[in-house]
Design a binder for these strands. Sequence first.
DNA 1: TTGTATGCGTTATCAG
DNA 2: CTGATAACGCATACAA
Lengths: 338, 338
Amino acid sequence: MVTMSDVARVANVSATTVSHVINKTRKVNPATEKAVRDAIDATGYAADTIARSLRTGRSHTIGLAMTAISNTYFGDVVHSLEREATSRGYTLILTDTHDEPQRELRAIRHLLSHRVDGLVLAPSAGPAQAYAQVLRRKIPLVLIDRVPSEVLPRVDAVGVHNVEPIASLVDHLVVAHGHTRIGMLAPKTGIFTTQERIAGFHLGLERNGLDPGDAPLEHAGEDADQTSAALERILDRPSPPTALVLGNNLITVSTIAGLRRRGITPPHGIATVSFDDFPWADSFQPRLTTISQPVDELGAVAARLLLERMEDPGQASRYVRLTPTFQLRESCGCPPAA
Amino acid sequence: MVTMSDVARVANVSATTVSHVINKTRKVNPATEKAVRDAIDATGYAADTIARSLRTGRSHTIGLAMTAISNTYFGDVVHSLEREATSRGYTLILTDTHDEPQRELRAIRHLLSHRVDGLVLAPSAGPAQAYAQVLRRKIPLVLIDRVPSEVLPRVDAVGVHNVEPIASLVDHLVVAHGHTRIGMLAPKTGIFTTQERIAGFHLGLERNGLDPGDAPLEHAGEDADQTSAALERILDRPSPPTALVLGNNLITVSTIAGLRRRGITPPHGIATVSFDDFPWADSFQPRLTTISQPVDELGAVAARLLLERMEDPGQASRYVRLTPTFQLRESCGCPPAA
DNA sequence: TTGTATGCGTTATCAG
DNA sequence: CTGATAACGCATACAA
């Protein structure tokens, strides 16, 4: 490995000068500077981030801890976060929480031991006091997607609105298509966004004169099998719903597949509306009516909040709520567009 | 921050002993050990990976450099790589090459300056001598997906078979459905897998008595607009194809959308077969006939190859070719399954 | 305008 | 069985 002293020797200067040239941290004679730069090129020297971090206490890395289960969502967030981080000279370190408090804790410890300068966390279900540890160490932290209200004033966060969008999905089913038996396949219980989405479902029913207590609701879990089972349960009820609200993209995919196996293709036989859009939603049949999260922006805003917090630790904490957009297509029963 | 000396002081031992307890690197009196462990718990000490890396020369991180454009593929590979790495005590660092030699070079430098113990690279187009630098430093390297044959004997790699699977797609179009005008929308030019997939297309045509020189072929580029344009070009030819081979999942999505805008839904009007499967392919209409890459396995094998190389740098290099599977569905013209 | 000396937190060598 | 000490590669306070 070629170190700074090697460069210094080649350039006939001290390591100090090399360091200053690299970091532009004090004035140095143009001739000397050139000598140093030439030596750097000649030796192929690249600064050792590790040593630098040990010395400065800043690692120029940021950590991301979230579940990787929901692939398209995960990929999008990672992508936009990486883009933003890299453009500001930071490196992204990745860990998967598997949405389990236990793993989440380990992931965070992991990140901290790597001395990340800041971290982005999508809290799993559970008491989620994992971040207490982070806050204690005063490491800048941004919560993404799931934002428990308890911690809100003390930490930066970014998420989307869940309640009103889901409620408006219900509005549409009732007002435009006359449904009165509306069911929901909700994501894993205990997660913040799940609670909000269910609340939105109930709100939508109530304000349209329907009884939330009476509405079929099943938790679809996390994989295709659990979702299929939930779908079976909801369809086999005495008076099955004529429309379904699907709580996230995984649930949507499995549900469409499950309906298909029963010979049902929305909106025929049953109408569906979904939370979470994806590139495919507009290309296939049925074209899916969805609530589309601004996923890229979610990652970008998270990065921005984090970096700004890192620059100015004293500032008041911020909570950014992004507004998803309503993608009215055909699975809800609307006619094909012209 | 609580350091090893803090723990040592609390436990009334030397830092050396603390280190040995943590690393189980020499025998220590059970009583002493207990004292140390208690002190660790009491102080909440966590080893500083940075300092450790500086000392040992090993960072316990592995780097991934690939393009994040193709989201589902990217997410899947990242996911399985992260899983494998974490389970072996390694941390994953991420960089996006944007499929540009320039960015790729920067990404690799970045990773190297972070002293990754090994790295996984999906080479972009271009001369791709980026990894020369890596090899010079003798950092374990695994190529994933794109595997230029020039470097093959000198480096570990994992990829899928491209030629024969695409050829068999063509076989199917000809033999089962009688197509003779078959076109291809190929991915970005200059990339290894693109070359192989085109070769497979030509092989398939030839062995079915069709003239490759005569077959419509367009490069679809990387975004929806470029793909749409390529689709227009291919459909507006004097004698347009009756069947289309789509070179990757991005192209498939954009193509289906583009056809849709023209009022065409495969297999009616035109048949399609695609390289790359995705969870949605089986759930919507048309159900897509595809070649499905074992994406999870790709990531897992890459990690395994890398970790094994790191353990035994002397061993002969290996090239693992995974076999994708043929998912016969309906977009090619086959009747719906029972 | 430049150089010397020191320490970041850890592990490895050597000595006890 | 345990401890003192040096060194990893860099950035910075201080000195010149």
